[in-house]
Design a protein around this nucleic acid. Structure first.
Lengths: 187, 187
DNA sequence: AATATACTATACCGTTCTGTATAGTATATT
DNA sequence: AATATACTATACAGAACGGTATAGTATATT
């Protein structure tokens, strides 16, 4: 596997997050990555293809990181859903945090017919299903309902943090999540 | 007051929401509005100026609409915060709903130094303060905390609806909001 | 020594972008 | 009749956009 391909992917990921996708030209990407357009277009047939790969890799990285955190720290199977927002807080408050790819992408490509919007929407749905799985393992009755609510808190908190770094929104999202989870367990 | 200026403003608002801000050129705006670039640049000195005015007007319209709804329907002063998500639901599920301007704009202009990002951030903060005022009038102790949590639910639900129209997310946001409000009142 | 692979360098194509310059029309005011 | 105002029509400047064509280099494989 070429290391240049990864370099382009990583550079694009960073630039898309910090400058926006539409505001980042391929000339900028190759200049920062230290390569040329010919190489970029060898690995990624179009800019749209590159964007889709960036989104996929970002989401995979996040999901893998979160799943490892939860797996390595939970004793009982019902611990995971309770610890979820602890690790989300860790992720959001990390100095490396640049935002959530699919949230920004869906805003830049608002048309539901657009492949980038569709991928974003799919990733959001899959993340919600992941939370739903955690809720099910914790024997929560309305697992899907709780998962949807937690995902709203999550996306709201990420949105708040994207607007103003260090907003502290995640602290309150965590509190709200605890209340909702406790309420759902007692049912 | 010129009617053409308003026509340009309305057209830009619609196009920015449906196609994205960066993806909408001024040529498209004037073509759809049925005028010319000379007229657009007479009223708005730059595209950035137009964007800022579009965001301001959108937010004013939304806030006015919401405030009228709440004022005309609340008997006791504490009713407003309880009815908040009823009207948010009405707004989100309306066929005219195209998303929240400042949420999309902040994603398209992620740099916190950017004037458009800064306006978006300010609008989000002001909306949270508005909710905070409602919570205070309802004699809720941690009014700011509750307002922040409700704003996270709000932005999360809007985000969800922007990703997939008819997601039904607002129903669950409403339930969660009721739980959080009741919890905050009992304290 | 010959060949394949990976990559660089550079120039270019056609299009779109924001913004302006120039000239002309239609309508209302004085 | 003269003038101001609002607007249209069109062409263009200068830059940036995505994407390609051509030629050449450096390295490893056979």
């Amino acid at each position: 596997m070429s290391t240049l391909r990864d370099k382009i992917l990583d550079t694009a990921t960073d630039l898309f997050q910090t400058r926006g996708i539409n505001s980042t030209g391929v000339d900028t990407i190759v200049a920062v990555a230290g390569t040329t357009k010919m190489t970029l277009y060898k690995y990624f047939h179009t800019k749209e293809g590159l964007i889709l790969e960036v989104l996929n890799k970002s989401q995979q990285d996040f999901q893998n990181w979160l799943d490892n955190k939860l797996t390595n720290n939970s004793k009982a199977p019902s611990d995971k859903i309770k610890q979820l927002f602890d690790f989300i807080e860790e992720w959001v408050t990390s100095p490396n945090f640049l935002g959530m790819g699919f949230i920004k992408a869906s805003a830049e490509f608002p048309n539901e017919e657009n492949p980038i919007h569709q991928l974003s929407s799919k990733q959001s749905r899959e993340f919600r299903q992941y939370i739903s799985k955690l809720a099910n393992e914790a024997k929560i009755k309305d697992a899907d309902g709780l998962a949807l609510q937690l995902s709203l808190l999550f996306e709201g908190a990420v949105q708040a943090e994207q607007m103003k770094r260090g907003s502290g929104a995640i602290k309150y999202a965590k509190k709200a999540a605890k209340l909702l989870i406790d309420g759902a367990i007692k049912q």
